[in-house]
């Protein structure tokens, strides 16, 4: 049975590294893996998404609307934007973090004030403060690996040797803090 994980956020938040680590781990574990990203102008502060699919044999690299087992959002409003990708019994993990887009910055629109309630009323939702936890560990940038830890736990992928994956793919100086970050994320869901 193919599983689908949708990672969303804002350009520059580190969704791409998180999905790279995730897909490498899944491949090492013997799954067939497909992953799809949209680049381009999104790196100028636009909305970004990474589709990750794994199973015995995966066809489409893209998750169908209504096909995601889990939606992991690095930013709160982005979770709302992609909610229709979720299966009716799908799960949402969302970073308690807001990035204001241009219409909001310029005062033309308001950031959705009740994002938490909407998400909770629509799906099983875990809101976690990945930035705060990352700061506690001493580096805001490990936020993405905290969220990766949350995905691993939520999808029941703890058996994979993630420490080895971190060692293979990260700068050696950053491995230890990221191992801690991964564990932190796993404990948050």
């Amino acid at each position: 049975m193919t599983k689908s994980i949708l990672l969303v956020g804002v350009g520059g938040q580190g969704t791409i590294l998180a999905s790279k680590l995730l897909t490498n781990g899944l491949m090492e574990a013997g799954y067939d893996v497909k992953m799809s990203e949209i680049h381009g102008m999104s790196q100028r502060g636009g909305s970004v998404s990474s589709h990750v699919r794994y199973g015995k044999k995966v066809d489409s690299p893209v998750i169908e609307i209504g096909g995601a087992d889990i939606l992991v959002s690095f930013e709160k409003m982005e979770a709302l934007r992609y909610l229709n990708y979720l299966k009716t019994d799908g799960r949402v993990v969302v970073n308690d973090y807001e990035i204001l887009s241009m219409p909001i910055l310029s005062g033309k629109a308001d950031y959705p004030g009740n994002a938490d309630e909407i998400l909770k009323s629509k799906a099983q939702t875990t809101i976690l403060d990945a930035i705060g936890e990352a700061e506690k560990l001493g580096n805001q940038k490990v936020m993405n690996v905290i969220l990766l830890g949350a995905i691993i736990k939520a999808m029941g992928l703890e058996e994979i040797d993630w420490v080895a994956i971190l060692r293979e793919n990260l700068n050696q100086k950053l491995v230890d803090i990221n191992i801690e970050a991964l564990q932190t994320g796993m404990n948050l869901v």
Binding site: I65, G66, L80, L83, N84, L86, K87, T88, D110, P112
Partner: peptide, 12 residues
Amino acid sequence: LPTVLYEEKEVV
């Protein structure tokens, strides 16, 4: 596919 529905206009 059946999916989670929400008000798209709430999203900026």
